[in-house]
């Protein structure tokens, strides 16, 4: 069958969509469809809680209703979420969704590092925790060299001096500081 005889919506022999069909066949980014589904799922979950988690109070003006703005927001999320899902479904599929999701999961390791660092600050103090985190991260990232370890330690010291000693940002001393004599403990708590 010649190309001229191919119906517009039918695929060509090469497997590519026929010209009129192409407007619908944007290529999907890896991870786009899973994200669209996740977002819709989240919006639907919020919608299912709209009646219980936000109140409509009888005999109160509509513009004063506590549930008005959550409802506007959730209906907006649903409206745009549906459009986004349709657009994703109509696009040409990606075979790399799984790999992309694994990348999202891999990022959680560093979220773990971040939370562990935050916990360590309360235990061993801001300076030791920052120093330790920077040095271990540089090692974990595979960029450890004498120079990078030096700069990691210098950076950690600089951050603590700038934020805690100079700007006096409110970060309490670590529990470890309690092991020191009172004067040293006070000094460490104020500056490090």
């Amino acid at each position: 069958m010649s190309d001229a005889a191919t119906p517009a919506t039918q695929r060509t022999l090469s497997g590519r969509p026929a010209p009129r069909d192409r407007r619908y066949r944007r290529t999907r980014r890896p991870g786009e469809l899973p994200f669209a589904l996740l977002f819709m799922g989240f919006a639907l979950w919020l919608f299912s809680h709209l009646g219980t988690e936000a109140r409509w109070i009888p005999r109160l003006n509509w513009f004063q209703q506590p549930a008005l703005w959550p409802a506007i927001a959730i209906y907006g999320m649903l409206f745009f979420g549906v459009l986004n899902l349709i657009a994703s479904l109509m696009a040409q599929g990606s075979e790399r969704d799984r790999r992309e999701i694994l990348t999202w999961v891999a990022a959680l390791e560093y979220v773990g590092w971040y939370l562990a660092y935050a916990w360590a600050v309360g235990q061993i103090g801001y300076l030791p925790a920052t120093m330790l985190t920077m040095l271990l991260l540089v090692w974990r990232l595979g960029i450890a060299s004498r120079a990078s370890l030096f700069w990691a330690a210098a950076f950690a010291l600089g951050v603590v001096v700038v934020f805690k000693a100079l700007l006096r940002v409110g970060i309490p001393g670590g529990r470890l500081y309690a092991l020191f004599p009172p004067d040293i403990q006070r000094f460490l708590s104020v500056y490090f």
């Binding site: 971040y114 660092y117 600050v121 920077m134 990691a152 951050v159």
Partner: peptide, 11 residues
Amino acid sequence: FLGAAVLVLSF
């Protein structure tokens, strides 16, 4: 290295 620095600063 920049990523590690930003992560620490974000805290």
